[in-house]
Design a binder for these strands. Structure first.
Lengths: 171, 171
DNA sequence: GCCGAAATTGAAAACAGTTTTCGTAATCCA
DNA sequence: TGGATTACGAAAACTGTTTTCAATTTCGGC
């Protein structure tokens, strides 16, 4: 079973690979390669974690301050369409985008104290879901499992259970 | 284990009980009892399922057409605060509200074809989540599990897998 | 290299769902 | 039954996201 892991630095080879895959996608669709899109995707792939549009735009603006929201949104949609990126919503009202990790499918643990998001995958869990669906005459296309709580890595998160921070507006 | 069930008609006694509980809540908070709030909550508790604000407003307007969005939103917030109702978001951008069923906690299967929402609960699933969290040094406060797919009750949902209907914008 | 159709951009407007404002009306305790 | 307090409803404001539109860029063919 694949344990929880904090996301590692994206490695440069993988990033290049993804950029190439996106270029392919763009070409296959008969779309055009533009400076803005390149800036956005290469910025995106070099970030790690679950990026909100605003976070991405901020980074992107460092490379090219003239790029605006619209283009970032549009490019993210393309990334999702290309299959290179997934959109997630964790209940704080923001869409977040995640470049595929090497784990194909995974679920999330979200620390309500520090906001850290961990990925995990467990085949028994998947199997159990399948068999439950089966029993109930339901066919699963996809699912979403999110555990909200406190990570124990940082003692701070265990102490500060006041639910003051991120917890307030989550969900 | 508690199997999937479609929601039954809310029974009149339970509804009365909830209305009373809400009245209590209002009083404890030093708020006022108003005709509008009464209309809204009694309409809400007599509906079943996972109600969107618009659905609720439509129903409410039949009893009193002068009631507007603002009051419905405000009353729903009170219901959530009172603990009698939970807010859910299934990724179509709408908040949905659910009066507690008799199953305290439960997860959801959502049919992407017909939009039907089923509730289920499975202790093994819960236990597995707990042990995964344990292993990974994480403390769960709450979680959310949603299975998206096609219900097999209606043959229509199995046939029509084209992802044309509800599926398109979901997530 | 240059043309021109087609795609893309950025700013701003539009949108959807939700929240807030503000003047008026209803509640309810002394 | 005041009268302070809370609630109401309509409309404006807000947030995150999408669309519009005129101007710009891309790129395959010449």
């Amino acid at each position: 079973m694949v344990p929880v892991k904090k996301l590692r630095e994206p490695d440069e080879n993988l990033v290049r690979q993804k950029e190439a895959a996106f270029a392919d996608f763009i070409q296959r669709k008969g779309l055009k390669t533009t400076r803005q899109r390149n800036t956005i995707i290469s910025t995106f792939f070099r970030l790690r974690g679950h990026i909100s549009v605003e976070e991405l735009l901020n980074q992107v603006k460092q490379a090219n301050p003239r790029i605006g929201y619209a283009t970032v949104y549009r490019t993210l949609h393309l990334l999702v369409e290309s299959g290179l990126v997934e959109e997630r919503r964790f209940g704080d009202g923001l869409a977040r985008y995640e470049g595929h990790s090497d784990v194909e499918h995974h679920d999330h643990m979200i620390c309500l104290e520090c906001g850290e998001i961990f990925e995990f995958f467990n085949p028994r869990l998947e199997a159990l879901q399948e068999s439950l669906a089966e029993e109930n005459n339901f066919q699963i296309f996809r699912h979403r499992l999110e555990l909200y709580g406190a990570c124990k890595d940082k003692e701070a998160c265990q102490r500060r259970k006041s639910r003051s921070s991120v917890a307030a507006q989550a969900e």
